[in-house]
């Protein structure tokens, strides 16, 4: 076990965990931030996507020791009131079915739009192909990204 000081959603949090613990389980188990989801554990489905220094990363395959003093943003910290343009667009497009993958989808989309405010279809595919939705809401995800792009 070791102590780590983390910067999560603008706050400094201290956790005492084994250094190989993936960020995902630190968020969910130690910090009670359960919005970041477990889907595969091998960075294949994107349900666990968070931002590390502004980049979309798969927290299930990122050991806490590698996070160092990086700034982590989770779905809970994307906006204070759930009114980030991507969140608003997701609600407006009524994207979700079961909803489980959507926090990961939203985090991938938000990272994309931050770098590329008006992505092409191909750029959307490249950014979003790592996020699986078994319910098949992909068309609405694309629509919401375009809505968010138009909003910001």
């Amino acid at each position: 076990m070791a102590t780590f000081k983390l910067h999560v959603n603008g706050k400094t949090r201290e956790v005492d965990v084994s250094p190989d613990t993936p960020l995902l389980w630190v968020l969910r188990d130690s910090l009670d931030l359960a919005g970041t989801k477990y889907g595969c554990g091998i960075a294949q489905c994107g349900a666990c996507t968070v931002h590390l220094n502004g980049e979309a990363v798969r927290s299930c395959a990122l050991p806490i020791s590698a996070v160092a003093d990086g700034k982590v943003v989770t779905i809970e910290g994307l906006s204070e009131k759930g009114d980030h343009p991507v969140q608003k667009a997701w609600e407006e497009a009524d994207v979700m079915q079961c909803g489980y993958c959507q926090s990961g989808q939203i985090m991938s989309a938000a990272a994309l739009l931050k770098k590329n405010p008006a992505p092409s279809d191909e750029e959307i595919f490249t950014a979003m192909n790592g996020n699986i939705c078994r319910c098949g809401t992909y068309m609405r995800i694309r629509e919401a990204i375009k809505k968010a792009s138009a909003m910001s």
């Binding site: 359960a34 779905i75 979700m96 926090s103």
Partner: peptide, 13 residues
């Protein structure tokens, strides 16, 4: 919808 976009803990896991 609102709970989902905010990542509220509403699932079994």
């Amino acid at each position: 919808g609102k709970k989902v976009i905010k990542g509220e803990p509403i699932f079994g896991l």
